[in-house]
């Protein structure tokens, strides 16, 4: 497959809280995930690949697992089965390993080259470090060696030391946009989920507005993929010219410069122009 064919790749990783408190929401969450998959597949000619990360909590609150990753299956029906098999158990105290879930998804999902990448976070409890998302903590006295961003008070930290900064940095460095669905309306959870999503350019919505999140992701896809034929032409021309020169591309395509610039921005963000830029 040439990288030209990679233009319609979309990689999506669901990150789902499967602790006991999600018991009453798990059916709704499963439905939202499946709806999201269907909506993304239905509206566009896209090559969709889906992964799944479950998260619970750290010992001693929970001893089954902190995060558990389900790699993308060869067909989406197999992933639907994995989603339907999710069970809500354990968890201990109220905060959960939200940061770990998103961080693990960003690191473990085998993101394909040039794909448009999303994480959809679904949960009903804030991360450890309830105030960490507010980011008003005191500045650290000393950054830890190989540090993971600013530290808040020890009591506010996730046991593994992750902060919202680490999570958004992990997502951004892999070009992943995080969207979040909040199954409850408490301020700590909404605030934390909003901070995670906002830090990557994504959005957070309550579960009652699940359609909104799916709609937002759909709108992003619409924007990026409705111009696929044009983007293919832009890529062909840019490669022919040997550099991503907006004016020359626009002239060759006979289109306004702003249209060529937008197309090059889409291609550039997904790494299609890296070889040209390095040349």
């Amino acid at each position: 497959m040439s990288d030209n064919d990679a233009l319609n790749r979309v990689d999506l990783c669901f990150v789902v809280d499967t602790t006991g408190s999600m018991g009453m929401f798990i059916k709704a969450a499963q439905r939202h995930l499946l709806d999201a998959m269907d909506a993304l597949r239905a509206g566009h000619d896209i090559d969709l690949r889906v992964g799944l990360t479950e998260y619970r909590d750290h010992p001693p609150q929970e001893r089954s697992f902190v995060t558990r990753f389900h790699a993308p299956k060869p067909d989406l029906q197999a992933m639907q089965k994995a989603i339907n098999a999710l069970k809500a158990e354990g968890g201990g105290d109220a905060p959960e390993a939200v940061f770990d879930g998103v961080h693990a998804a960003c690191g473990e999902m085998p993101w394909r080259e040039h794909s448009r990448r999303f994480v959809l976070l679904v949960g009903d409890a804030p991360p450890h470090g309830a105030r960490a998302h507010e980011r008003r903590e005191e500045a650290p006295e000393a950054e830890p060696a190989g540090g993971r961003g600013r530290r808040s008070r020890a009591a506010d930290l996730c046991p593994c030391g992750l902060t919202v900064h680490d999570v958004t940095a992990a997502a951004e460095s892999r070009n992943v946009t995080v969207h979040a669905l909040c199954m409850v309306a408490d301020a700590a959870t909404v605030g934390a989920f909003t901070a995670i999503a906002g830090g990557t350019g994504g959005a957070c919505a309550p579960a009652q507005s699940a359609d909104k999140i799916v709609g937002t992701m759909g709108a992003v896809l619409e924007r990026e993929f409705s111009s696929l034929p044009f983007d293919r032409e832009t890529l062909r021309v840019a490669r022919g010219i040997g550099e991503p020169d907006t004016e020359r591309v626009a002239e060759a395509l006979g289109c306004p410069r702003v249209q060529a610039a937008a197309s090059l921005a889409r291609l550039g963000k997904r790494g299609f122009l890296d070889a040209l830029s390095a040349a």
Partner: peptide, 17 residues
């Protein structure tokens, strides 16, 4: 604008902040 378009020509969105 053309000059700035060219100056930013190799800048792509990507990475942490």
């Amino acid at each position: 604008l053309g000059d700035w378009e060219r100056a930013f020509g190799h800048i792509r969105a990507g990475g942490a902040t």
